[in-house]
Amino acid sequence: MALNHKRLAITFLIISFLGFLDATYLAVEHYRGVTPPCTIVAGCEKVTTSRYATIFGVPVALLGSIYYLTIFLLSVLVLERKKERFLFWVGYLSGIGFLAALWFLFLQVLVIRAICLYCVFSALTSTTLFVLGILVLKSKRDSGLDGPSTTNRILAP
């Protein structure tokens, strides 16, 4: 495996773990059934109790938690099984995470009009993962690892 890819996988591993902790915390808060306390620094009560905090009854924090865990486990697979293919999966996945982060930031700033620090942290980790994802897909295109494909060009211009 290219050294470059190994480094990327390790970075994915660390960032996705931080994201996992963050999202899991919010998911646990949700399922504890207690109204989250009001805090000066986090300001999450308005955001996490808003109707945008769940999709069809599933808390978005839980979806986030699963997302980060998936990236985390895929990164472990890349490092442990030396399967670079999974690294590209991570690259594509990070795009979805980034779009979700943009959507949630939009909701917080313009719709709910309250900012939750845990959500902002999540947006930061998702964005970092996305930047790493671009690097991965770019390196894939440059090296032409599994031949040219249309998805390549679309996702990593």
Binding site: F20, T24, Y25, V28, F72
Partner: peptide, 26 residues
Amino acid sequence: AIWTGIFALVILSIWAMASYSGSGGG
């Protein structure tokens, strides 16, 4: 060993977040 460690780490993280939650405003 690696996968057992990873599995334990994930479980431990969930547990840690669960005990951190509800600490009354951090």
